[in-house]
C-alpha cells in the first residue's frame, strides 16, 4: 500500500516538472510575441495572411525586396 502511494507521488512530481516546463515554454512564447510587436497592430496581420496564395507575391516585403536591390 505504502509503495503504491510512493509511486503515485513520484508521478505527481514528474507531472509537475513537465507542466512547469511546458508552461515556461508558453510564457516564453508569450513574452516573445509581445516583444516582437504582435499586439501592436491587431488588424493588418489577419488581412495580410489572406494574400499568401496570390502568385508573384510573398508577404515578407523586406526580404523579398532587399534581394532585388
Amino acid at each position: 500500500m505504502a509503495r503504491q502511494y510512493f509511486n503515485l507521488m513520484s508521478v505527481i512530481i514528474l507531472l509537475l516538472i513537465a507542466s512547469i516546463s511546458v508552461a515556461s515554454l508558453f510564457l516564453a512564447a508569450f513574452i516573445w510575441s509581445v516583444k516582437s510587436g504582435q499586439y501592436d497592430d491587431e488588424k493588418s496581420p489577419p488581412m495580410r495572411m489572406l494574400f499568401d496564395d496570390k502568385p508573384n507575391f510573398t508577404t515578407d516585403n523586406n526580404n523579398n525586396l532587399t534581394n532585388n536591390n
Binding site: D40, D41, E42, K43, S44, M47, R48, L50, F51, F57, N61, N62, N64, L65, T66, N68, N69
Partner: peptide, 27 residues
C-alpha cells in the same frame, strides 16, 4: 479595406525605387 492593405504593401511593384512599405492598419 484589405485591398488597400494589399495595394499599399505592393507599392514596390508600381515604382522600383520603393524598397518596401508596411501598413499599420489600426493607425
Amino acid at each position: 479595406c484589405s485591398s488597400c492593405l494589399w495595394l499599399l504593401e505592393n507599392l514596390h511593384r508600381l515604382n522600383e525605387n520603393i524598397i518596401s512599405s508596411k501598413v499599420n492598419f489600426t493607425r
